[in-house]
Design a protein around this nucleic acid. Structure first.
Lengths: 80, 80, 80, 80
DNA sequence: TCAGATAAAATCGCGC
DNA sequence: GCGCGATTTTATCTGA
């Protein structure tokens, strides 16, 4: 019933939420690799598939960054 | 309608599945960090929380391995 | 004259080389920031300058990666 | 021939100086890692080598700070 | 072992 | 001057 208990309860709850998310994440990594294996089974090259996913993500990222810099310019010119 | 088209279709499907999983994974990483931030907001130390999650995962992993070894021993002794 | 001494000598030499490189690197970071300050002094926005440098580096990086993936495809098709 | 052109020229010059410095910095990071690899090849542990360099830098930093404080004290006592 | 990708930790620069 | 977000650096993990 002390403050410590309450804190411990909080801590426990946080840890449990973190562990749940971490497990889910690890599950998805497993799924990702399973899909890679499946694709490899039908003749695709895993390395290439990873590269494609990576490049496409980078594209999206760069596009977003370019928009940001445009915003910066506009803000700088008092046009935002 | 050539074989190439079919392959392209397969490839596209694989890429999409991979991207979906990758995005979900990244989403979970975001959620994880959000929980960390929330916990930090109530006074916990992020680094320590991460460490706890990591240690508990390793514990679980070690426990599982030890059980496996035990199973092997038992099987070996005809006691499984 | 023991093996330990020889190892110690090697270790010392490695550490010194590493420290020299690290110091040079830190010097360049200082120079970089000095140029940023200078540019800021003539009215440019540091944040934008950083962004430009970063975007241009990403461009170069992506271009290189795209060449790599092309090579991968070609190798995969036996055309390398 | 407008003011904009002059600015653009300035901007270009600044960007080029920044990129040169950034590239040099990245080159040194590469060299640093190359030395680490070389050391690893003769049996040293990269992680530990990094740690040593980092600790020694912190030591040096702390020593410098302590000297500064000492200088302050001395100046304050009219003994500088 | 090696490199490449990912995750984790530390550092830095900005705004309040 | 300090938190906060972004960047950089360090460490881990995986596949070749």
């Amino acid at each position: 019933m002390s403050t410590n208990n309450i804190d411990a309860g909080h801590l426990k709850a946080f840890i449990e939420r973190l562990e749940r998310l971490d497990e889910e994440r690890r599950g998805l990594v497993g799924d990702f690799n399973a899909v890679l294996d499946e694709a490899a089974g039908t003749g695709y090259d895993k390395k290439i598939l990873r590269k494609i996913v990576s490049l496409r993500r980078q594209d999206a990222h760069k596009r977003r960054e370019e928009e940001e810099i445009l915003d910066l310019y506009l803000a700088n010119l008092g046009m935002s």
